[in-house]
């Protein structure tokens, strides 16, 4: 997963928003805090609420939590949640599964990587 902003122009424009630029391993601890701030409005690890429960999501087929009322689009998707597909999903869910109902975006690539590292830890 790339941890830097892609183009120099973008880099200049987004210096303020793409904060820690150093190439470093994804930080699951920071991911836990970000998860707490960004995801728990709708998700929990072990209970489905507004969104489905997350424990075990990495490696699982999309739409795989029993009993959660997924959108038809997500339910029908053959996608498997990997670091890569999760990164694309969190950047723009609609571009990954058109017709999905999450619509929540995490613009910062470093934040996405850290959140995914945290989710991986909850997915033995």
């Amino acid at each position: 997963m790339t941890r830097t902003c892609q183009s120099a122009a973008l880099w200049t424009a987004l210096t303020l928003l793409c904060t820690p630029m150093a190439a470093q391993a994804a930080d699951a601890e920071r991911g836990a805090t970000l998860y707490e701030q960004r995801c728990v409005a709708c998700h929990s690890l072990d209970t489905s609420r507004i969104g489905p429960a997350h424990r075990g999501v990495v490696g699982r087929k999309a739409g795989g939590v029993p009993g959660f009322a997924y959108s038809p689009a997500l339910k029908a998707s053959d996608l498997v949640w990997t670091e890569d597909s999760l990164d694309r999903w969190l950047a723009d869910p609609q571009s990954v599964i058109p017709g999905q109902r999450m619509n929540y975006r995490v613009a910062d690539a470093v934040a996405r990587a850290d959140i995914i590292a945290f989710l991986k830890r909850q997915s033995p």
Binding site: Q37, R38, C39, V40, A41, C42, P93, Q94, Y104, R105
Partner: peptide, 12 residues
């Protein structure tokens, strides 16, 4: 979480 949720769906 709700504040962040609203901010995060704005682009959609």
């Amino acid at each position: 979480g709700a504040a962040n949720a609203y901010l995060g769906v704005i682009p959609s």
